[in-house]
Structure formats: C-alpha cells, structure tokens
C-alpha cells in the first residue's frame, strides 16, 4: 500500500511566488493537503513555531534572512518546536560549496532548480525512508553529514543527472520549429559578427 501523504503538514518558504505555487501544486497533486507557505524566512520561522510541521522546504537565497540562517534557527533556536524536522533546501545554485554550506547548517536534502516531479518525489521518499541520525557537537547540531552508501541515495545533487534532460531529435521538430530556431541562430551569428568587427 502506498504512503498516506494526506496526513502530512508541510511548510514552504520561498521568496519566489512561482516556486511556492509550483511546489504547492505538485505536493497537492500527490495528496498532501496541509500545505502552508511563507515568502521570507522571518514569517516562515514564525509559522514554523506556531504549528507542528512534518517537513520544511526552504529557498537558499532570501531576504532578510537566508535559508541557511533559517535552517540554523530551526535546528538551534530555543523557540523551535521541532529541531529534528527534515529540511529540504531549494536553489538554482547547486555547486558543491553551497551544498556543503547547507549540510553544515543542518539541511537534510538539497533540491536543485529546475527540478522535475520525479526528483522532488525522490527527495520526499528519501526523508521518509532514510532519515539520518542527528549529531550534536560544540559547533554543530543537525543530521549526520556522513551519508551511508545506500542504493536509494540520490544526492548530493548532481544537477544535470537529476534533471533527466529531455533529448529531442531533429525529426521531432516540425519545420516551423526548426525554422524558428535557425532564424534565431542566424541572429546570434549576426550579433557575434558585429561584435567581432567592433573588437577588431
């Protein structure tokens, strides 16, 4: 029998209205009904303190506090009602340095934008099936950053691989589509040529 996702309560914190709507729509479509959203970390943390959330999605870059600072607050603030809540961080910047910073601040999973429904679902399954133990040291509290090798493990984010690039063959394009792209390509060549002349 499949998961009973309707029992979950999820909080989405992102300053981008499109991403909030997109996540909300996907999660609703898979059966989750209690989905709250906040457009910045301050109101997001306030909402987090008022209700019992099972999972938090947060953007990386936000004002006035970043997603990293928010993760810190969830993990270590005395006000935090659930320092063990899984946190999935979303970002267009998916380089190793950022992923490591996120891990160092207590983030559970990293989700690179753009993401597909499949990748989002794999993150959701990962936090349900493979919760990591927590580690407390003098300078860190959060999920164990040493990840066990596991066949279900999908991260750290490999952006290109995760994206499941849709390859289109030339035969898949209509003549109109091909012409439109070729016209645009000719325009780029024209700009490049003019620029070259200007440089010479």
């Amino acid at each position: 029998m499949s998961y009973q996702l309707e029992s979950l309560r999820i909080l989405i914190i992102d300053d981008n209205a499109h991403i909030r709507q997109l996540l909300r729509t996907i999660l609703y479509a898979v059966g989750i009904r209690a989905i709250d959203v906040a457009e910045d970390g301050v109101t997001g943390f306030d909402a987090f303190c008022r209700l019992e959330y099972d999972l938090v999605f947060t953007d990386y870059e936000m004002e006035p506090i970043s997603g990293l600072d928010l993760a810190d607050m969830i993990r270590t603030s005395r006000k935090s009602p659930n320092p063990y809540v899984p946190i999935i961080m979303i970002s267009s910047y998916a380089d190793e340095t950022r992923i490591q910073s996120a891990r160092d601040r207590g983030v559970t999973e990293f989700l690179a934008k753009p993401f597909t429904v499949d990748v989002l679902m794999s993150r959701l399954e990962s936090v349900i099936e493979n919760p990591r133990p927590f580690v407390r040291t003098d300078s860190y509290f959060g999920p164990d950053r040493r990840r066990k090798q596991d066949s279900r493990y999908a991260g750290p984010e490999r952006r290109k691989a995760d994206l499941e690039k849709v390859n289109v063959s030339v035969r898949d394009l209509s003549e109109q589509q091909r012409n439109a792209l070729q016209e645009s390509r000719a325009n780029v060549a024209k700009v490049a040529k003019v620029a070259k002349v200007a440089n010479d």
């Binding site: 690039k165 849709v166 390859n167 289109v168 063959s169 030339v170 898949d172 394009l173 589509q177 792209l181």
Partner: peptide
C-alpha cells in the same frame, strides 16, 4: 513554437 526538451541538434 513550443520547442521542448533540448531542442534537438538545432536547439
């Protein structure tokens, strides 16, 4: 023109 995916060789 509704070109999806990587747009093929032209894209």
């Amino acid at each position: 023109n509704g070109v999806k995916g990587d747009g093929g060789a032209v894209g």
